[in-house]
Design a protein around this nucleic acid. Structure first.
Lengths: 344, 344
DNA sequence: GAGAACCGAGAAAGCGCTTTCTCGTGCCGG
DNA sequence: CCGGCACGAGAAAGCGCTTTCTCGGTTCTC
């Protein structure tokens, strides 16, 4: 005999009636408030069990002022990097009883601010990945988003931890690795023009060029996915470079696939490197040399920081910087004798 | 001068005071109820804008009895298949103004029922992917989860659409393809033992074996990830099979990687096939022959079905069956001459 | 010009829960 | 033997919103 409240679901009132007590008491029992007579508590629990009563989280959230939910804004759910962040975040948050609400901006940066605001209002905190948003816009919305954790973006606003990967250093490490293998003509297959992390890579390359005036570094336009890499084959060959730094692993995989189709050998003819060390990088043929970013861990860290903010703990770690680790695999090898541009 | 309500955020009451009207009127204006005098409406809007007022979604949800949020339960967020479903679902739902809450059960099937219940209560509907849950348990919880859409599971309960991929047929198509290439000794590198979709594949293989008594099909234990495939190399070689049907693309990639390390040629020595056609399948070397499942579309469809349920439309499509499409690429080729000679 | 129909906005009642406030009970000590 | 106190549970006040109800003020009709 399940009584039905106005909405058709079992509510606290139904349990109260069944147990012959007030809703207040039911609430107390459900929340483990032990100022309730054990007998009554047992009666309430029995009634709740019989009715299969489960508190309505919305009512609970309104009364408590918290939702036990956090939000994450990502620019592209198809990108393994954000998938990994989401995974790490979700797992860590789940351990503390929090759920995560996702907001995919589909690379439409104008949407990001709105999505972020909406998500934030529904949740107790927010993790924001907004690589294309301008600094100005970011500074603009950040104050209204607290508690907030930024990923791969920095802000001047206090109390907003920001987790950033040192892409600049990573790119330099890769370039150094190629130079050590004897490459003197490199090419950087860039990411999306307005991407913040692409900017960091470019800075790293500038530093590298300053340290190695003898090495030629060609800049090529690109993007962030397979197809970008696949379509860049001609540009790459035209550059005459023997060591290619792709924006990320996806681009590198696309490029290797394209080179393979042209009958070129990696790393025999050309060395290719990626970035991120996504799970697939280990299983490409040849296995991809890349800069490993502890990306799942980054998602976990994002939760730790956010949790501290939500709990209003004085987090002494206002953010962290992650150093990529060079992962040398089989896609890089000694440079071939210098060669002039080849056409396929 | 932003007034603050008890919670420290701008509330409807603040706007009401500032505009010199009642909250009711503010609410009417915010919801586009045009029984309000234009002048007053303008005043309210101005006040709201100045205060940067944004309605609290929790209060709104409680009053409206809906959250504009749907939930999805997945067994493993690291699996590209579920990532794709999530992506399709999220995109489709976003178009209708819905957000998605994720619940990752981390393959702990005992958690799935609880997670599903919790997620459902927070949301207006639920998409459930629970491949390891027993049929009994599934039937047990399904009624309490409505509106609900199942993925790759069926239920006897009415009004619960179920979107299933015809894994059985897909496996048969792949096996036929290998037979046409001259393979007579096949091996199936199975998925997780209790996986529902693995069961469907096994059924398909039984049908295949019945139709091809002459073909030897070895069953090998497996799993669902890279490592499974990578570690199965010995077992695969021991089987003497020349055509390997891997549980999915991940397993196939792991296997190819392992075979490559042993100096074996795919498809020269052994043909390997996957399942799912994840985005990476096209870029492996050799490109993977697989059965393509329109998985993102499946996520979108899940939303369409769920939306119909939420809106109480009489959906005449209680579910759909998806036929995988054989995608022949470079990882399969003619069988090497087995013990018996091959005649021209 | 008086009553009816109308219209717009405030008052108030929820939505389902938590928590403070309040009060009746039973027990203690003086 | 009675005042004070601790305690346990009900009443009620929110949490922030939507929506019905209500009512004062118009406008319309005959």
């Amino acid at each position: 005999m399940v009584r039905k409240s106005a909405t058709g679901r079992v509510g606290i009132a139904d349990v109260a009636v069944k147990a012959g007590v007030s809703h207040a008491t039911v609430s107390r029992v459900m929340n483990g408030n032990y100022t309730v007579d054990p007998d009554i508590a047992a009666r309430v629990r029995a009634a709740a069990a019989e009715l299969k009563y489960q508190p309505n989280p919305v009512g609970r959230s309104l009364a408590l002022g918290k939702t036990d939910t956090i939000g994450i804004v990502v620019p592209d759910l198809a990108n393994p990097t954000f998938q990994a962040i989401l995974r790490g975040l979700s797992r860590a948050a789940a351990q503390d009883g929090y759920r995560v609400l996702i907001a995919d901006s589909f690379e439409v940066s104008s949407e990001e601010a709105i999505l972020a605001g909406e998500a934030r209002r529904r949740c107790d905190g927010l993790v924001l990945c907004a690589p294309r948003m301008t600094d100005a816009e970011l500074e603009d919305i950040v104050p209204s988003l607290h508690p907030l954790v930024l990923i791969n973006r920095a802000t001047a606003t206090k109390g907003v931890p920001s987790l950033v990967v040192d892409y600049g250093q990573g790119v330099q490490d890769i370039a150094e690795h190629l130079v050590e293998l004897g490459h003197t003509r490199l090419a950087f297959l860039a990411g999306p023009p307005r991407s913040a992390s692409n900017g960091l890579r470019l800075q790293g390359l500038e530093a590298f060029k300053a340290a190695h005036p003898d090495v030629e570094v060609t800049m090529l336009e690109g993007g962030s996915d397979f197809d970008t890499g696949h379509e860049a084959v001609d540009a790459v060959l035209d550059s005459g470079a023997t060591g290619i730094l792709a924006f990320n692993d996806l681009v590198a995989m696309g490029l290797m696939s394209g080179l393979h189709e042209r009958g070129l050998d990696v790393p025999g003819d050309i060395s290719v490197t990626g970035f991120d060390d996504i799970p697939f990088a280990k299983y490409t043929t040849p296995a991809l040399t890349t800069a490993a970013v502890p990306i799942t861990e980054l998602g976990e860290q994002a939760w730790q920081q956010l949790r501290a903010l939500i709990r209003k703990e004085d987090s002494d770690a206002p953010g962290s910087r992650y150093q990529p680790r060079l992962e040398v695999r089989a896609s890089t090898g000694p440079a071939k004798a210098p060669r002039t541009a080849v056409h396929g």
